[in-house]
């Protein structure tokens, strides 16, 4: 076998280029997972994905509304503080609105003179109060199932594409090139819209619901969303699909609150580095011009 490359570096450069170019001929956006047991999770369009992505403030406010009215009775957001609701890059509620939301919660703060825990209403600086005191309390209220905290749920989930093994590297490169970090968000959206009638012949365990997306297909949470479950002040249609999109986007924000600022800074850094690379390349060429190499 006579492999006559000029240098391994040039070869890998060519190989890499070939990868990237051929990846342009794939449109992974339209793939659907295979049949059988593989759940049907598709890549969605989110306002915050990719190089130019940023959160849609209105969507986050609607999503918070869905969380507050539907999810917060069982799921906590303990890593967030109420003041986050008023910060830039998020739902951007006013300070007063965020304070009103905080004050609806009851916080344990210190002990009274008898040593009993003291309660007060929430402040902006408080963390979100979880609906249950601890895991045991949560399980006992939910037939032994534990509704997990949702603070970072959008990053704690993912899904696997069922594609031929030799195409996987193309998907990796495509995902990196497009900055696709929303697999978890796509999973949440698919889960919330994945409640269906169980297929014929499948007997559900007690208290479980059938979900096309959840691993094992039986989920302890009954379908949380319904059409018109939550009122939207801005006139957006209140379908299950819309509710699912909005709350998934909201959970993306709870997991990654600084996304807007990060991508913004990223553009500046990338432009700076490109200019610096150019300057250094010209300097390098100029320095080496007088030496043969």
């Amino acid at each position: 076998m006579n492999l006559s490359f000029t240098s391994p570096f040039k070869t890998t450069k060519l190989g890499f280029a070939a990868f990237v170019v051929s990846s342009l001929f794939f449109s992974p956006l339209a793939y659907a997972a295979g049949g059988g047991d593989a759940p049907d999770i598709k890549r969605q369009n989110w306002s915050f994905s990719g190089f130019f992505g940023k959160y849609d403030k209105a969507q986050l406010q609607r999503g918070f509304g869905v969380y507050n009215e539907v999810c917060s009775s069982c799921h906590g957001l303990k890593l967030l503080s109420y003041r986050n609701l008023a910060e830039k890059g998020g739902p951007e509620f006013s300070k007063e609105q965020a304070l009103a939301i905080a004050q609806e919660a009851t916080v344990i703060d210190g002990v009274d003179d008898e040593g009993e825990p003291k309660e007060r209403s929430g402040k902006l600086s408080d963390h979100f109060v979880s609906p249950f005191k601890n895991e045991a309390a949560a399980r006992s209220a939910n037939n032994g199932a534990y509704p997990p905290d949702l603070s970072v749920m959008a990053k704690a989930r993912t899904y696997h594409r069922h594609v031929p093994w030799y195409t996987e590297p193309y998907y990796w490169l495509y995902d990196i090139a497009t900055g696709y970090e929303e697999k978890g968000v796509d999973y949440l959206y698919a889960l919330l819209t994945g409640y269906k009638k169980p297929p014929r012949g499948l007997a559900l365990n007690e208290g479980m619901s059938y979900n096309a997306v959840f691993p094992g297909h039986q989920i302890a949470m009954s379908a949380p969303l319904s059409d018109e479950a939550v009122e939207y002040a801005d006139g957006t249609p209140t379908t299950i699909d819309q509710h699912a999109r909005d709350v998934s986007a909201f959970l993306a924000w709870t997991a990654e609150p600084h996304l807007n600022a990060r991508k913004d800074m990223g553009k500046r850094v990338m432009i700076y580095l490109v200019i610096l690379a150019l300057l250094l390349y010209l300097a390098k060429r100029s320095v080496w011009a007088r030496e043969k190499h």
């Binding site: 580095l273 610096l276 300057l279 250094l280 010209l282 300097a283 100029s286 320095v287 011009a289």
Partner: peptide, 20 residues
């Protein structure tokens, strides 16, 4: 000229790097 260009580019690149 080459030397001036070299120096200029080194200084330009160096200052740009320093600012960053």
């Amino acid at each position: 000229n080459d030397e001036n260009r070299r120096d200029f580019l080194m200084v330009a690149a160096g200052s740009f790097a320093a600012v960053g």
